[in-house]
């Protein structure tokens, strides 16, 4: 175990090499070179339209769904350049889970929502599924609230519960990396704080990339921060460095709220 952990520190979970993304002829990402370390929370911050969400969605190829886009450069995850068209997106997305801004529970029961991922990847044995659903709900700090109502529709949960269910659902495919796109921005502060605590507890098992508009959130829970501006990574480093002694004037202005 020790040895494996040491190895992890040496290889970043995600490494991008001059990654570019184009919507038609518009270059939305202008050469991103960034490393995301294992078992850390990396926060992507920056003003609207800076490309941080586009970058996040490139990491599990969700941008494939948008017509008329193309990429250049490389993204290395698990020893593979996942930008290659031949790369298996099904396997990639199983390995790189995603939690969206708005909870989108399937109109099924709580249980079936969590079991969805394992089922599409071929896990059908009831006992195995039961165990997995329970452990994922427990990891997402939702088990105690729903253990007696697993057959109730997921839509009957509160907003914060739904978002934790989405995290449980993402965990159920046993990913290595979790991408989170502003997971708390649609929630009230109390539910948001719960999710934040949850995210922090998850980093022992997962590598987390978190897009957030909430500077305090980035400062509170992330280990590393990358500041995006106009399709480039302006500055990146340990979160306390970025927030306490940023190198660039723009970074300082952004984190002190001069522009957003």
């Amino acid at each position: 175990m020790r040895q494996a952990a040491a190895e992890h520190i040496l290889t970043p979970a995600i490494r991008t090499e001059d990654f570019r993304f184009y919507y038609g002829s518009h270059e939305a990402l202008k050469g991103i070179t960034l490393s995301v370390e294992q078992n850390e929370i990396t926060a992507l911050i920056g003003p609207s339209g800076c490309g941080k969400s586009t970058f996040l969605r490139s990491l599990n190829r969700m941008n494939d769904l948008i017509p008329d886009t193309r990429t250049a450069g490389e993204i290395w995850i698990g020893g593979k350049d996942i930008t290659k068209p031949a790369e298996d997106t099904v396997a990639l997305r199983k390995q790189v889970g995603m939690v969206f801004q708005h909870a989108s529970p399937f109109p099924f029961s709580i249980y079936d929502n969590v079991a969805y991922g394992p089922r599409i990847h071929g896990k059908v044995r009831k006992a195995e599924l039961d165990e997995l659903v329970e452990s994922c709900l427990q990891s997402a700090a939702l088990w105690d609230e729903v253990k007696d109502t697993l057959n109730k529709p997921a839509g009957s949960l509160s907003g914060g519960q739904q978002q934790r269910l989405m995290i449980a659902r993402a965990l159920a495919t046993k990913p290595d990396i979790l991408l989170m796109d502003e997971p708390t921005s649609a929630l009230d502060p109390i539910s948001g704080a719960k999710i934040e605590r949850l995210i922090q507890s998850l980093k022992t098992q997962f590598t987390i990339v978190l897009v957030t508009h909430n500077m305090q959130q980035a400062a509170r829970i992330s280990d590393r921060t990358a500041f995006f501006l106009n399709g480039e990574v302006k500055e990146t480093g340990r979160t306390e460095m970025i927030f306490n002694s940023p190198v660039y004037e723009e970074t300082k202005d952004y984190i002190s709220g001069k522009f957003g």
């Binding site: 769904l65 396997a91 990639l92 889970g97 989108s104 969805y116 495919t173």
Partner: peptide, 22 residues
């Protein structure tokens, strides 16, 4: 809703699985 399609694909479903399961 589009969000349900995306949710399914993000969990690693194929397009066909998304169609018949969601």
């Amino acid at each position: 809703p589009r969000s349900l399609r995306e949710a399914s694909l993000a969990l690693g479903s194929t397009r066909w699985q998304m169609i018949y399961k969601v």
